[in-house]
Write a protein that binds this DNA or RNA. Structure first.
Length: 574
RNA sequence: GCAUCGAUGGUCUAGUGGCAUGACUUAGGCCUUCCAAGCCUAUAGCCCGGGUUCAAUUCCCGGUCGAUGCACCA
């Protein structure tokens, strides 16, 4: 068994040695919070992203878009990141510790500190002790530290830009185009996979907290009153552990239940959220996260964003970091679209026609301009506008125009009752957002796939990746480096490549060493060409996990390996 | 960001104010008929900047990165 304390070191060491993860730009000294994906890491990342695409694009039908990683200031004013994504900080003049100014105030029982302006906060905390050195702070400067990377766009104008702190906003700002693309109907979804940036104050957990990271996000736009997922039946009976807010408060454990139950019992807000909880569980297990080390935790009321109706985190257990939030699934209501409506002045709504236009009685107050004009002259327009939105009393309408209260008598307007046909309504959709941290998923897969075992008194290190995740899918070896075996092995390698399979030929060193090399990078299958191959064209296929081998006709190899990778056939069945 | 500790080939490591150890890995070769065997050969290293010194990988100062604690953390 592996000592849990050093599994992280072992994994990162292997990842570094074998080309999965490297510290970035090492020749100049690395920078914390940034990593390079090496050859095998890039391949593995792409495989995971493509599995994600299979779930969201192929299966759900939510197309992918790609937006810039730099956005103009307005986007992030609207999203709240310019204001809300910064911390009010100060530095203790005595011990030079950087501190959260609002936390100092709140820690001393001062309410509403998070809403205060910097100057106000500074004067409040001046008399308080530093939590680090306990000296009274005295006059301090409170400054905002924004977690967004700041830049300027173009020369001269110095227009402010930010590196995006999440991919989601690109989807919101494209809402009108997307709505038209999806032909003006709800629900529809759009996804984006790409880099996001957060200038973390002190990123220290390896690839768990990065300053540049990859997100895969889906934004699903639904009718606010229709949160039943049209394909809910797919996951209705899917059972998994849910760590609800209630269970957390009670100090209890997660409860295992089906999605159907979860929605019926009100544990999960609606079918959409439940559906993506199950889909996420399905996906994470499929890429190699162990189900025993995966849970879904609901946000407690105090950590739930004020606009969110429900939010769950998929948490992956790491023996080093504990439960790591890896995916967030939230019902964000109409918050984002409303925010961009307000900032941009554009309307972000869907016009939904009724099945049959509805007849409605409407009372309209129509001002009599012929009488209003001569009587009120310059104020006539303002009065007419006010009349249009008023409810007349028996004696007329009382209005306050330019500070003067006045009575508008019934002869100055006409009340018309009319029947109008309303063809439909405008609806601002609600947004269901599953948001995945790809890098954290990769770390989770690495940690959960890593195994050490003793074979013939030798330690064997093996990454038990699912075949679809493994960077190298199959290795091909000639048993001996002569007698025509290499030629046959190279032919088989070519046949595999022609079938779109990532195959690696290797004839260096003893056969056992070659198997071990592939075990360590998680290659699921290895084909060996031996002397029998010359006689009957059969080769051995070796399974990484069981180390068992079967002999098969070499002509069948490309199709067989394809099926093994796609998991339509399992090795045990051979 | 603060405090403590650390940094020597790809990896692990010995050691030093004056030619820098060894093992593993990797590459080439010999051998070898299925799970890191053996033999020969080769490649490759003192985190960065400044200072002290005739001479610094070694001592001093500053920085970077990493670990730990504090603080911070969609």
């Amino acid at each position: 068994m592996i000592a849990m304390s050093d599994i992280y070191e072992k994994i990162m060491d292997l990842a570094k040695r074998r080309g999965f993860i490297w510290p970035t730009s090492e020749c100049y000294g690395s920078v914390a919070g940034f990593i390079d994906y090496g050859p095998l890491g890039s391949m593995m990342k792409r495989n995971i992203e493509n599995i994600w695409r299979k779930f969201y694009i192929v299966s759900e039908g939510y197309y992918e878009i790609e937006c810039p990683t730099i956005g103009q200031e307005e986007i992030y004013v609207a999203s709240g990141h310019v204001k809300g994504f910064s911390d009010k900080m100060c530095q203790c003049p005595h011990c030079r510790e950087y501190l959260r100014a609002d936390h100092i105030a709140e820690g001393n029982g001062i309410a509403g500190a998070s809403a205060m302006k910097s100057e106000e906060l500074a004067s409040v905390i001046g008399t308080l002790p530093c939590p680090a050195c306990e000296e009274v702070l005295g006059p301090v400067e409170v400054f905002s530290f924004n977690l967004m990377f700041h830049t300027t766009i173009g020369p001269g104008s110095q227009r402010t830009g930010y590196l995006r702190p999440e991919t989601a906003q690109g989807i919101f700002t494209d809402f009108s185009r997307l709505l038209r693309f999806y032909r003006d109907r709800l629900p529809f979804g759009t996804v984006q996979i790409g880099k996001s940036y957060r200038n973390e104050i002190s990123p220290r957990q390896g690839m768990i907290r990065l300053r540049e990271f990859t997100q895969a996000e889906a934004e699903i736009f639904v009718h606010p009153d229709q949160k039943r997922h049209p394909r809910f039946h797919r996951y209705a009976d899917y059972e998994m552990p849910l760590f609800s807010a209630e269970q957390q408060r009670a100090g209890a454990s997660p409860l295992s239940m089906t999605m159907q139950e979860a929605v019926q019992r009100g544990v999960v807000a609606n079918e959409y959220v439940a559906y993506y909880l199950a889909l996420t569980h399905d996906l994470l297990v499929r890429i190699g996260i162990s189900a025993e080390r995966l849970r879904f935790r609901q946000h407690l009321p105090d950590e739930l964003a004020h606009y969110a109706e429900d939010c769950w985190d998929a948490e992956v257990f790491s023996s080093r970091f504990g439960w790591v939030e890896t995916v967030g699934i939230a019902d964000r209501t109409d918050y984002d679209l409303r925010a961009h409506e307000q900032q941009s002045g554009e309307r972000f709504a869907v016009f939904l026609p009724y099945e049959t236009p509805q007849r409605m009685n409407r009372v309209r107050v129509v001002p009599n301009m012929g009488a209003l004009g001569p009587r009120f002259r310059g104020s006539a327009k303002a009065i007419a506008d006010a009349i249009g939105t008023s409810l007349p009393g028996p004696d007329g309408i009382t209005l306050t125009i330019e500070g003067n209260e006045m009575l508008i008598t019934p002869d100055l307007y006409e009340v018309r009752e009319e029947v109008v046909e309303v063809p439909g309504e405008e609806v601002t959709p609600h947004v269901i957002e599953p948001s995945y941290g790809i890098d954290r998923m990769i770390y989770g897969v690495l940690e959960h796939s890593y195994h050490e075992e003793i074979v013939d008194d030798e330690e064997r290190r093996v990454l038990r990746f699912p075949p679809a995740v493994a960077p190298i899918q199959v290795a091909v070896f000639p048993l001996m480096n002569r007698d025509g075996l290499p030629e046959i092995a190279m032919e088989i390698t070519d046949a595999l490549k022609n079938r779109g399979i990532l195959a690696e030929y290797d004839d260096s060193g003893a056969i056992g060493r070659r198997y071990r090399r592939q075990d360590e990078v998680g290659t699921p299958f290895a084909i060996t060409v031996d002397y029998d191959t010359r006689e009957d064209r059969t080769v051995t296929v070796r399974d990484r996990d069981s180390m068992r081998q079967v002999r098969v006709d070499s002509a069948r190899i490309p199709d067989l390996i394809r099926s093994l990778i796609d998991q339509t056939v399992s090795f045990a069945e051979l």
